[in-house]
Design a protein around this nucleic acid. Structure first.
Length: 283
DNA sequence: CTCCTGTCCTGCCGGC
DNA sequence: TGCCGGCAGGACAGGA
């Protein structure tokens, strides 16, 4: 499910419930998510105080005062809900992890498909965990721009859409925002990644940043099960140009004189996953 | 190395 | 109405 914007919003949502707070209890309703929790998981959380939270790619990191950090990934269907101390928590199916903190506020992790996971690792070396080794730059950070992107792409022969999903190229881009960024930059998803020129590299880097920033500002994309931690919905899905819009007119070329004969947005499959684009606008 | 495919798991939707 | 196939926001392993 969640790509960078949704993970960022989830992290912002839980921060006021956890930052500086004592974790009182951690209840597990399943033996494993993607991986087993491990015998020491609950003990590693209970009685510890949260120092800080941060995001890296699609991962949330929760640093504890025990020199351990919680690595948290939401997989495809992971969702976090928060409950204020005095509010009622009504359990729903697939609520796998319940954390009670501070004054009694609760943080609940629900994940129908259990593709997500939580792992405790030494804080000092969290970035040396396999998930983060070789991970590409943060697209909203200073290290990401046209030249840096081109450098990462130049030797690649795979289609640019598939390559953008590789977290070693740039962190946090997933299936929705890869299609959206390619549309915004006018680049065909079928282009070999290494074939982009300087101008296209700059355009694509800018489009990735722009799309992600707009998605965060719009509260992310609420498809299927994704919601904010307080239960509210994002509305960036209403601003998709191409994703899940197969058969609709292209928002750019359908309005241009002499170009109304395009077939509109089409869906293709690349690497077993859907790609949406406008064959007329994206070359 | 890169690339391509399959797999983990449940839910939902459309077609018959 | 029920059943079945296909698809879903991700990451990783293993083989070519």
């Amino acid at each position: 499910m969640p790509e960078l914007p949704e993970v960022e919003i989830a992290m912002r949502g839980i921060t006021p419930f956890l930052e500086g707070q004592l974790i009182r209890t951690c209840r597990l309703n399943a033996p494993a998510l993607r991986y087993p929790f491990g015998a020491d998981f609950q003990n590693g959380l209970e009685g510890k105080t949260v120092l800080a939270l941060e995001r890296r790619g699609k991962f949330i990191l929760i640093h504890l005062d025990s020199k351990q950090s919680l690595i948290w990934h939401l997989g495809m269907s992971g969702r976090i809900r928060t409950f204020a101390p005095e509010s009622d928590y009504a359990p729903v199916k697939h609520d796998h992890v319940l954390i009670t903190a501070g004054d009694g506020q609760r943080i609940v992790y629900n994940d129908a498909r259990r593709f997500g996971f939580m792992r405790l690792v030494p804080s000092q070396n969290w970035h040396k965990e396999t998930h983060f080794i070789g991970m590409g730059p943060e697209p909203l950070g200073n290290g990401f721009n046209g030249p840096a992107l081109l450098e990462a792409l130049y030797s690649k022969t795979a289609p640019i859409k598939i390559t953008l999903l590789d977290q070693r190229i740039v962190a946090g881009v997933g299936n929705i925002y890869a299609s959206e960024a390619l549309f915004e930059s006018g680049i065909s998803p079928l282009r070999p990644a290494g074939s982009l020129n300087e101008d296209e590299g700059a355009k694509l880097a800018g489009a990735i940043r722009h799309v992600l920033e707009r998605a965060i500002a719009s509260g992310g994309s609420s498809l299927r099960d994704y919601q904010h931690t307080d239960g509210s919905l994002g509305y960036f899905q209403h601003m998709f140009s191409v994703y899940d819009r197969a058969g609709t007119p292209c928002p750019v070329c359908s309005t241009q004189k002499g170009r109304q004969d395009g077939q509109g947005i089409i869906r293709i499959t690349q690497g077993g996953r859907s790609t949406f684009y406008c064959p007329q606008c994206q070359k």
